[in-house]
Design a protein around this nucleic acid. Structure first.
Lengths: 214, 214
DNA sequence: GTCTATAGTTCGATAGAC
DNA sequence: GTCTATCGAACTATAGAC
């Protein structure tokens, strides 16, 4: 059992973390196996040995994080349902909070993973789009269904639009620090948790506006 | 004068349009000069002859469209100011409507240009980020200033966040067709103008919620 | 202006020594 | 398990014929 225990100094874990950082900073196609290997302090052939290929590495990165994030979302969604009818704010917070918590956890590399998701979600790269769909279309569906349960007049298309617009604002928030800092030297960087609480308020109001229009 | 008149059949214009399509579909780094040349029906060396380099082509693409979009935004903003105090909805519509109109104009390639902007705005590519900043940070500043005029208690950082979250939702809307269609075969694709009217409602409500929080 | 051909890089993958 | 070395494929830029 001890040989199965992995710390951050293990080769494969170092590669996973370096891969997260590289994909977040350069995108899927833009990240290079050579650069990841250098960052992880190993040889490029080690990545092939542990993960087979660049895409194999990406799948391993996703396995390490997304099952945990999605499980937390489902737990929060189930908890809301036991307490009766959730509100729009409840649902959006249940969806975004696990991401907030992971993004705030900078030491463990969670921030890089969340940034990577933000980059991939709006990427044009086929591999990135496929990975996002494989890992998040299921949970997305469970939340769009929940929207429609509390607002039965919404069509499936309405719920998908509400979900994707909220997600778009959430992703903008994750990537916000960079552009905001470039736009103004005076920009006051809030911590991630505070910023994403603002997003929950922003998106909830937006979704309610879509529901009650016309 | 006649020799200056360009139609879509001109070589340089064909290259510009093919470049827009390629950058929108593959991103800046992912688009290839070979592919663009093939799509435009010319040789790869022609791109170098007319535009110097890949980055030169991108700058030419931006020159063709962004000055027009930003001029329309400034005209709308000035018109609002002559009529007294604009509302949040007014400002967001003034900013997004020129983009809506261009995106709706599929024949002239406006859709590809807007899609390209959406891709570049959340891109990690240094060239893409620089081009976005060069072309849009000025107009962004004029709109964040306008936010603060109607809501003086907002700090500059508040206004930047409101602007970037609204833009994030707007960009999500532009890219929405693809992911929504993949999420559900039942997705009912609204026309671009209708979709982006929904974004104005969504983002306006979101910004108002940020303004009146706590 | 238009074209072919290619120089010079960089990449992912992999063969094979140890 | 770890490493060096390299193959083959892509790319941008450009030289130079016509």
């Amino acid at each position: 059992m001890l040989t199965q225990t992995r710390t951050d100094s293990d080769v494969s874990t170092a590669i996973l973390s370096a891969g997260e950082r590289a994909f977040a900073e350069f995108g899927y196609a833009g990240a290079s196996m050579r650069g990841i290997a250098r960052d992880a302090g190993v040889n490029q052939a080690m990545i092939a040995y542990y993960f087979g290929s660049k895409e194999g590495l990406l799948h391993a990165i996703m396995r390490r994080r997304s099952s945990f994030v999605n499980a937390q979302r489902d737990i929060r969604l189930a908890a809301l349902r036991t307490k009766g009818q959730p509100t729009v704010d409840d649902l959006i917070e249940a969806f975004l909070a696990p991401l907030i918590e992971l993004a705030t956890d900078e030491e463990q590399g969670g921030y890089s993973y969340v940034k990577m998701l933000a980059v991939f979600t709006h990427s044009v790269d086929e591999v990135a789009k496929r990975v996002i769909a494989e890992n998040f279309d299921g949970i997305a569906r469970r939340f769009t269904d929940a929207f429609r349960e509390i607002e039965p007049q919404m069509t499936e298309s309405d719920a998908i639009r509400a979900y994707l617009l909220s997600l778009g604002a959430g992703i903008a928030a994750v990537g916000i620090a960079g552009r905001a800092g470039r736009m103004s030297g005076q920009y006051d960087h809030p911590d991630t948790a505070k910023l994403l609480r603002a997003v929950v308020a922003f998106s909830s109001a937006g979704v309610r506006a879509l529901m009650h229009r016309d």
